[in-house]
Design a protein around this nucleic acid. Structure first.
Lengths: 273, 273
DNA sequence: CGAGGCGTTGACACCCATCAACATGGGTGG
DNA sequence: CCACCCATGTTGATGGGTGTCAACGCCTCG
């Protein structure tokens, strides 16, 4: 299901009834200056190095922003091999990019957080080779950016932000390749937790030393490339060593230094400074 | 060692003596219209979808291209945590991007071929978190592109090419994440061979059904995240099934259909069409 | 109260890493 | 021309990390 098919008209009521929401999984809401402002602030926090064009970027995104879309948890935003004709700025929630294999296996490629640009590859390529879906209720701001060359000629600041996003994503994926290829399960988990701590911290979503997140152990399994049961064993090991403790919806980091050490974590690849 | 430290002056003789070459690992050569033309042709072959700006891209790259650098096999082009102040257009050879871990393990993140843009992230970020090194003798065309916002304002076509490269790299890395996370060794190897077949074919480097490449079995191990010995066993399995045969420096694909099927290979992610 | 999602634990099997030994071949130096 | 070395490939034995299967407990929600 593609979000963009849903509501071309903007005269629609702001909230539908619950039944309709459940069926379509989406609600369209009007533009909101406050929401755009907040998401833009988060986006700019991630993109140090683009400061010179921040004001231009803000005005570009304001000019191109359309309505907001609210997607209920579990719904797909863009399906594999599907075309997503525009980009989104994330306002709230967690989004997963994943691929399902014929054998039933699944691999989570990365996760997106408030302030991230979604579907940036739609501006350059035909179709997405991955599924993009809402892990929690998600709110997106629809951005009507022109595709291909026109984007780069007319909106250089936005183009820079798109390129920056692609570059940051590439850097994070490269690090994930290292984890999946050459770290054992304990190292993988430790590294992933360190990454979450920094990414969430950068957008003000850390609650002290606890990571609040909508991942169950199966999500960790599909992200780290190991089995659910082994995720459980690995969390237990971290718990026994008093390094971190898992409970449904939250992970408490007790010994951050050892966690960094186990995961050989160096935050440079996150490109946050 | 950074290539760029070597030869600020362009008055240097075209070829140094062999001893000097062996020491520094690099030779600087003058600009060559023919070389640029050839590399540009290969680059444009990869970037369908940017056709509208090809002529602009060609003139941008011609304007910004400086001398050529020849790097001998095994030398590092950019080291981990090092700064690479410019980008390169690959003319010849194979380049590996990899990361070494403290434990001695190594992970190859991706490989670059003629026509690829190198170090594109240097235009946006401070330092590289990976090592970039020549697997064969490599020839690069140095491109003096401005960094950050200036690039997007003054050279939109080149900026588009940089973004396109980042997007394509990201897509390939996402696919590698799937392989490393959720495919067993036979599937990983089959998928990697299919990918090589298509990528080399796209730039005219396939010799019929044989892939000529500078990878030994240890390189495959570090790319696929398995051990050397298991690479050997896996190649033997492919050989026994008459699907592919490995010999030093070349791999012959005998049954391409089964190879694609085993690796669940779909070339869409390569973004070549 | 039942059902289903999620977490936990144990038993067992298998994929793959590790270690060791040997084969092969190309390059180097005598 | 030969002896030697080193990189690379090949094969077997063994063990460990991890996957798979099964069962059970807890909690939430309808």
């Amino acid at each position: 299901m593609k979000v963009t098919d849903a509501t071309p008209d903007q005269a629609r009521p702001q909230l539908r009834n619950a039944a309709e929401t459940r069926m379509t999984g989406q609600v369209v809401m009007p533009q909101s200056e406050h929401a755009i402002q907040r998401a833009l602030d988060l986006a700019c926090r991630r993109m140090r190095g683009l400061e010179p064009v921040f004001s231009q970027l803000r005005s570009d995104l304001r000019e191109l922003s359309r309505d907001r879309v609210e997607i209920s948890a579990g719904k797909s935003i863009v399906a594999e091999n599907d075309r997503c004709p525009q980009i989104y700025l994330m306002e709230q929630g967690w989004v997963l990019r994943s691929r399902g294999l014929a054998s039933g296996r699944r691999q989570i490629v990365n996760y997106c957080l408030p302030g991230d640009l979604l579907c940036t590859d739609s501006l350059l390529f035909k179709a997405s080779s991955f599924d993009l879906s809402a892990r929690t209720p998600v709110t997106l701001i629809r951005i009507d950016a022109p595709q291909g060359a026109e984007l780069f000629e007319r909106y250089p600041a936005l183009a820079a932000a798109v390129a920056w996003t692609a570059g940051q994503d590439e850097s994070m994926l490269a690090e994930r390749v290292v984890s999946l290829g050459r770290r054992d399960s304990l190292e993988k988990l430790a590294h992933a937790l360190c990454e979450m701590r920094v990414r969430l911290g950068a957008i003000g979503m850390m609650q002290g030393n606890t990571i609040e997140l909508p991942f169950n152990q199966e999500d960790f399994a599909d992200m780290l490339g190991i089995s659910v049961i082994h995720v459980n064993r690995t969390f237990r090991k971290l718990f026994e060593e008093r390094i971190a403790s898992y409970r449904k919806g939250a992970i408490e980091i007790r010994d951050h230094e050892r966690l960094k050490q186990i995961g050989s974590f160096d935050p440079a690849y996150l490109r946050l400074d």
